[in-house]
């Protein structure tokens, strides 16, 4: 239930000018089992986050926004895509909340709802990666790099390092295709 953009009260906090979705925290909990309401804003997650320097909204602010139902702000943030999944926050949280899982759930909700992603190249990379797995059952790095570069239009980046890896025999030309790829494809359907 998304209300109109009028000033409204959520958890005793006045949120003005933003649509509020109180059901967002339940969506998150259903997907990943984490209860964002446990967070008491100590900031330990942000203090230890290796990617916080590049984020537009800090990790503890993401938690607060999720508590308040500021769904659009969370889903449209760069931060959910800049979380590296290193689990430092989940390890150190004194309330036992795995913010890393809240980030995973937010990404999944964002993709499902067709939101424009604030870090499109990160999503493109993941999509190409999974397409490889769906096709071959494994990841073929040269094909992955080539397709990712076509989609992100980052043609010249890292050509030197890629060439060096190729010369050292680290990037094979022939993809390794598994026999059970139909079975693997079946895992993608749900």
């Amino acid at each position: 239930m998304i209300s109109d953009e009028k000033t409204q009260e959520c958890m005793g906090v006045i949120v003005s000018g933003c649509p509020v979705s109180p059901e967002f925290k339940r969506e998150i909990q259903e997907l990943c089992g984490e209860n964002v309401m446990s967070c008491y804003q100590c900031g330990e997650c942000t203090a230890g986050c290796p990617a916080a320097f590049a984020m537009d909204i800090t990790p503890n602010q993401i938690m607060r926004m999720a508590q308040l139902g500021l769904k659009d702000e969370v889903l449209e943030s760069k931060s959910i895509w800049l979380c590296a999944g290193c689990e430092t926050c989940a390890t150190r949280c004194p309330r036992g909340v795995a913010l890393s899982k809240v980030m995973d759930a937010s990404r999944q909700i964002a993709v499902k709802s067709g939101k424009t992603c604030a870090e499109p190249n990160v999503v493109k990379f993941h999509e190409e990666f999974l397409r490889q797995v769906q096709m071959f059952g494994r990841v073929h790095e040269i094909t992955l790099i080539a397709l990712y570069k076509m989609r992100s239009r980052k043609f010249v980046d890292d050509v030197l390092a890629g060439g060096q890896m190729f010369l050292k025999g680290k990037l094979g030309l022939i993809p390794s295709i598994i026999k059970g790829r139909r079975e693997v494809k079946g895992l993608f359907r749900k």
């Binding site: 990943c32 999944q108 993941h126 999974l130 059952g137 494994r138």
Partner: peptide, 21 residues
């Protein structure tokens, strides 16, 4: 005939797949 574990990409985009692979 092992398959890819799904790595970061699966658990970022699709939780069930990240367990199923």
């Amino acid at each position: 005939d092992w398959n890819c574990c799904g790595a970061t990409s699966a658990h970022n985009l699709d939780h069930r797949l990240s367990v199923a692979l």
